[in-house]
Amino acid sequence: MLLAYAQLSLRAFAAIFAPLLGQRSWRLSALFNQMVNIGVASMPTVALANFLLGIVLAIQGAGQFQKLGATALVANLVAFSILREIGPLITAVIVIGRSGSAITAELGTMKVAEEIEALNVMGIDPVKFLVVPRLLAMILMMPVLTVLGEGIGLFAGWLISVTSLHLDPVFYVANSIDAVEQKDLFTGLLKALIFGGVVGTVACYYGIQVEGGAEGVGKATTKSVVTSLTSMLAMDALLTTLIYFT
């Protein structure tokens, strides 16, 4: 199973880079379609989730910092944790639930309806035709969604701090900027990029190997979501260790 997954991923990435070596280009219309499906359509949910988490972070942080008499530190906490961890993580969770599952279900249904076999018979590579647009859209849109989510999360933290904690609006912003470095933003986005690759390959792999009709599609979708979540978290732990402990 792991071998088949690795094989599919390698073939997909090879096909993604093939146009750079002068081969036929990607199917741009399919790529844009998938970018809309995966990216644009996820924006409201990603924004809402990050907004709510921004609020929660600010309130929870304020509770702790109040005991130390340092409520102003809420700004540091929110900026720091959203950029480094919460933003990429919660965005990936939303994308897995919304788009990863949809990719697996769609490809699985196509497999069951003999559509993938039909592609093979027509001499069209299903990896190039189906996997590449989805995987590439996932890799491109995950950082975009993450930036959007982080912006909204930071705004939510600011909003709560200014309205309920009576912190100075300008002072809060200055504090936030002081607390983080550019590196925090970039490592967060690097994580998002890699999460996109992981979620895209896992979702396509489980979709393409579906067998056994509607029941098979359901089972594959469940497996796809569970595997995406766990491998995304494992990747997060690995990257955090590599970036901040070495």
């Binding site: 196509m110 003999e114 559509e115 039909a118």
Partner: peptide
């Protein structure tokens, strides 16, 4: 090849 159910996209 003509598939049993057509296998259209």
């Amino acid at each position: 090849m003509l598939f049993q159910t057509g296998a259209l996209f």
